[in-house]
Amino acid sequence: MRIGIPRETKNRETRVALTPEGARALADDGHEVLVERGAGAAAFLPDDEYEAAGASIVSTSEAWGADLVLKVKEPVEGEYGLLRANVLFTFLHLAANEPLAAALVQAGTTAFSYDTVQVEDGSLPLLTPMSVIAGRLATLEGGHHLLSSQGGRGVLISGAPGVAGARVVVIGGGVAGSHALAQAVGMGADAVVIDLDEARLAALARTHGDRVRTVVSTPAAIEREVLAADLVIGAVLVPGHRAPKVVSRDTVMRMRPGAVMVDIAIDQGGCFEVSRPTTHDDPVFTVGEVQVYCVANMPGAVGATATAALAHATLPYITALAGGWERAVAADGALARGLNTDAGTVRYPAVAQAFPHLPADPPAVRAVEAE
Rank of each mutant, 00 (worst) to 15 (best):
E62N: 10
D267A: 08
C271V: 09
G152A: 08
V290P: 06
D195S: 13
I233Y: 08
Y80V: 08
T251V: 15
R213V: 11
E51L: 13
G151E: 10
G142W: 01
A189L: 01
D197E: 14
V155Y: 00
N11V: 12
E141N: 12
A296Y: 05
G38V: 13
D342G: 06
K245V: 11
A180E: 04
R200Q: 14
V175Y: 08
T116P: 06
V290N: 04
F285L: 12
V284M: 12
A39K: 08
V119R: 15
R337G: 07
A42W: 11
L68D: 03
G174W: 01
D29G: 11
P283A: 11
M255Q: 09
V192W: 00
S61G: 15
P161D: 14
L201V: 09
R337F: 04
I3R: 00
A39E: 00
E49G: 06
V247A: 04
Q150P: 09
A296V: 12
R12E: 13
E36H: 07
A330P: 05
E62C: 12
R249C: 09
R224C: 04
F355G: 09
A160H: 13
Y80W: 14
H179I: 07
A304V: 15
V87L: 04
V368S: 09
G81V: 06
Y114R: 01
R167C: 08
I157M: 08
Y348S: 05
L104P: 09
L70V: 03
V368P: 06
A301T: 13
E120A: 15
S248H: 12
G159P: 02
E21V: 10
P6F: 07
R136S: 10
E120P: 08
T279L: 09
G338M: 03
A138Q: 07
M255R: 06
R153A: 15
L237I: 10
G303T: 04
V105F: 02
A352F: 01
E273Q: 14
V33Y: 06
G108Q: 02
V236P: 08
P316V: 06
A27R: 11
S178R: 02
G186D: 00
E141H: 14
P20A: 11
P299K: 02
G143H: 07
A221F: 02
A43L: 10
L196E: 13
G165Y: 03
A138K: 00
V215C: 11
M130P: 00
A66T: 01
T314N: 10
P244M: 02
P75V: 07
V246D: 06
A166F: 09
V284L: 13
H357K: 13
R347N: 12
Q118G: 10
T14P: 04
A354D: 05
D28G: 13
L147K: 13
I133R: 03
S59D: 15
E21T: 11
D281P: 02
A360C: 08
N97Y: 03
P299E: 00
D267T: 07
P129R: 06
T307G: 02
A42L: 15
I194Q: 03
G142D: 02
V212L: 05
A95G: 10
G122D: 12
T307Y: 07
A360M: 00
E98F: 11
A235Y: 02
A96G: 08
T279I: 09
V284A: 15
G78S: 15
